[in-house]
């Protein structure tokens, strides 16, 4: 390198070296970032293989007035009062255990959270009331629960 004799100032060579170093740095950092990002994107599934969050639960006649029927496989409790129907989540808002209908509403076996009949917290560590899901009547006359659609506590569907 010392053999290269040039009259041009030394500064002329430095920017190129600096630029290449900078370019390599950006390249390595970019590759790392892209790698991390794509790994995360890969790990986050686009489609899940679990149950669909929208499902039919039967006809309104299946749920007589006053019924409180917990469908544990779907993790909802279907409540009918008079001609009004609602679906209350049975997934504990504390840590995801399944709450069971009790005399006073719902009780969680894991950490002792208590809920009233509408899912409002009455005791234990649960931070939020149980979710209410939208219930609709399909054209065929079946009740359909949409767990992606949370609605306000106390909102019933009239049937």
């Amino acid at each position: 390198m010392a053999a290269v004799k040039t009259n041009e100032p030394v500064e002329e060579q430095m920017p190129r070296r600096k630029f290449l170093a900078w370019l390599s740095g950006v390249g390595i950092a970019g590759t790392t970032l892209a790698g991390v990002f794509s790994t995360f994107a890969f790990m986050k599934p686009r489609a899940t293989y679990g149950q669909p969050s929208r499902f039919q639960i039967g006809r309104p006649e299946d749920f007589p007035p006053g019924a409180r029927i917990a469908i544990d496989t779907k993790r909802v409790c279907i409540v009918r009062e008079g001609n009004k129907v609602a679906a209350i989540s049975t997934t504990c808002t504390h840590l995801g255990c399944i709450v069971a209908p009790s005399m006073t509403g719902f009780a969680c076996p894991c950490h002792g959270s208590q809920f009233d009949v509408d899912g409002n917290v009455t005791g234990g560590p649960a931070p939020k009331p149980l979710a209410w899901f939208q219930v609709t009547l399909t054209p065929s006359g079946d009740l359909e629960v949409d767990k992606d659609n949370e609605i306000e506590t106390g909102t019933y569907l009239s049937v």
Partner: peptide, 21 residues
């Protein structure tokens, strides 16, 4: 459908679970 009652974590996490309650 049926969580055991009580549902307990392994012993070394039970301190954590106690806090979590």
């Amino acid at each position: 459908m049926h969580p055991p009652n009580p549902a307990k974590a392994p012993w070394y996490f039970l301190g954590l679970q106690e806090q979590v309650s």
